[in-house]
Structures are given as structure tokens and as C-alpha cells.
């Protein structure tokens, strides 16, 4: 029972971590919370599900296209809703992002209707035993894929020129500009990468819960933000740790405390973290 909940928590937690990475990277470079991150997650899931429903696209292509669509949405959003507002009071882009989130959510509601869509293709997953404990291969696949994406992101940020340029912008935008880095392009690239990860997270959750619907991004988006704060906002390993911890806490809390308040656990943790250790577990740049 405990072990099962732990695995459940790690699975959803790894998905929160993927979304949290998007938040943390964007916060790192712009000091802005992209409230529409949950809608980008929803967009990735919808594109993959709709493509697969046509029956003409194979799974991996649909997955890649879903991520690409999410990435594109992220880049467009930055251009339309955030870039014109740079240099304003921080409230202004924040409210604009909330507007974008509501707008995208209701647009999806109009286009796709309010009902859950099942995932169009069926996977055959079995339960295997690891050290005598039953684990679903679906959970292993999701956990593995999420960790794989995180590894890729860390390699990208640490060892590629563009990744280092993003880190430079996050450290000091003006100095980065003086070093010849095109800051605007790096901001776009950050949105591209962060949104692609959120898109991937959306597709994985669409498979895991077998449901895709317009409001699916709301709660995971908020929880992932809590995860980013828990780990220390602006800190990439922190976001991963925060996501996993939050997923486990939520799953154990739902099992042992109260399932009716499952969604409240993440926010209770968020408020506690802000109260006790506002810089997060691993020190972030937030405060």
C-alpha cells in the first residue's frame, strides 16, 4: 500500500517536475510567472490526442508534434502577451498571463467541448514485480520518459552554447547582452524549451489518466508552480526535486489523510514553504 502510493506519487510528481522546469526556467530569465503554463500542457495533450485520433499518425510522431505545438504556443504567447509588457510593473505581465490562461482555456472549451477524451490508442501494460512489489509498466514508462527529458534538459543547459547563453541571461540580462548574447532570442528559446517539456508532460498525463479536457492544465499547472517554489524557484534541480516531493506528498496525503482534500495538499505545502523557507529547499533566485 505504502509502496504503491509512493510509486503513484513519483509518477505524477515527475510530471509536475516537467512542468515546474518550464516555470523555473522562465522565472529565471524573465522574473515572470507564466500563468498559462498549464494551458500549454493542455495544448500538447490535445494536439497529440487529435492527431492520434485520425489514425494516420504513429505514436512517436504524434508525441513529437504535440511537444512542437506546445513549444510554438509558448513562443507565440511570449511574443503576444509578455514581450510588449516588459519593463512594466510586475503586476502587468502577471495579469496578462492570467488573461492568456483564461483565454486559451475557454478557447479549448469552445473548440473541443467540455467532455473528457480518452486516449485514442490502447497500450497493453502489465504489472511487473520489482523486489516482490507490484509496479505498473505504464508508471515505469512515464517515470523513465520524464527523467529522460530532465536529463536532456540538464545536458542542454550545462553543455551547449545556447544552454549556457540562457543561464547567462538568467544570471544578468544586461551583462549577457554586453557579451553579445541576443537576449530576446534566448527568452524565446527558453519559452520554446520550457513549453515543449510542459507539452510532453501533458501527453503523458493524458495517457496516465486516459482523459484530455480543456481544464486539465489548471491544477497541474498550479501544483507545478508550488513544486518550483518548494525546490527554490529559478533552480533547475530544485524544480525536479520539488516536483517529485510534491507528487509523493500528495499521493500519501490522499491515501492516509483525506482524499477529498487531495488538491489542497499542494497548496498547504506551498504556504508552509513560504512561511518557513521562502527560498525553497535548494536555494532559488526567487527571494
Amino acid at each position: 500500500m505504502f509502496f504503491q502510493q509512493l510509486i503513484n506519487g513519483l509518477t505524477t510528481g515527475s510530471v509536475y517536475a516537467l512542468i515546474a522546469l518550464g516555470y523555473t526556467m522562465i522565472y529565471g530569465i524573465l522574473g515572470l510567472i507564466n500563468f498559462a503554463q498549464g494551458e500549454i500542457y493542455m495544448c500538447g495533450a490535445f494536439v497529440a490526442v487529435l492527431l492520434l485520433a485520425t489514425g494516420k499518425v504513429n505514436f512517436f510522431l504524434a508525441f513529437a508534434l504535440g511537444m512542437a505545438a506546445a513549444a510554438l504556443l509558448g513562443v507565440i504567447l511570449e511574443r503576444v502577451a509578455f514581450r510588449p509588457l516588459r519593463g512594466f510593473h510586475p503586476l502587468v505581465p502577471l495579469i496578462s498571463a492570467i488573461g492568456a490562461s483564461i483565454f486559451l482555456q475557454s478557447l479549448a472549451l469552445l473548440l473541443f467541448g467540455p467532455n473528457d477524451r480518452p486516449f485514442p490508442i490502447q497500450f497493453t501494460f502489465s504489472t511487473i514485480n520489482i523486489a516482490g512489489l507490484p509496479v505498473s509498466t505504464l508508471q515505469i514508462a512515464i517515470l523513465g520518459a520524464a527523467l529522460g527529458f530532465m536529463g536532456l534538459l540538464i545536458v542542454f543547459v550545462r553543455y551547449t552554447t545556447y544552454g549556457k547563453a540562457i543561464m547567462a541571461c538568467a544570471l544578468d540580462r544586461d551583462t549577457a547582452r554586453l557579451m553579445g548574447i541576443n537576449v530576446d532570442r534566448m527568452v524565446s528559446l527558453t519559452f520554446l524549451v520550457g513549453s515543449a517539456l510542459s507539452g510532453a508532460a501533458g501527453i503523458m498525463m493524458a495517457i496516465y489518466y486516459n482523459a484530455t479536457y480543456p481544464r486539465m492544465g489548471l491544477l497541474p499547472g498550479l501544483k507545478a508552480f508550488s513544486a518550483a517554489i518548494l525546490g527554490g524557484v529559478g533552480n533547475i534541480p530544485g524544480a525536479i526535486l520539488g516536483g517529485l516531493l510534491l507528487g509523493v506528498a500528495e499521493s500519501l496525503g490522499a491515501a492516509y489523510i483525506s482524499s477529498g482534500f487531495k488538491d489542497a495538499i499542494a497548496f498547504a505545502i506551498l504556504i508552509l514553504v513560504l512561511l518557513l523557507r521562502p527560498q525553497g529547499i535548494l536555494r532559488g533566485r526567487g527571494d
Binding site: I33, L222, A266, F267, L274, D287
Partner: peptide, 20 residues
């Protein structure tokens, strides 16, 4: 607890509070 922090935090915390 939250107003000592930056404005973005308050936004999320109040949103979470609404959900709770």
C-alpha cells in the same frame, strides 16, 4: 506569511487559497 514576499508569490498563494 505571504506578504513579505514578492507579488508573484501572493498571486499563486491566493489562487491556491481559493482552491482550498
Amino acid at each position: 506569511p505571504t506578504l513579505r514576499l514578492k507579488e508573484d508569490y501572493l498571486a499563486i498563494v491566493t489562487l491556491g487559497f481559493g482552491v482550498i
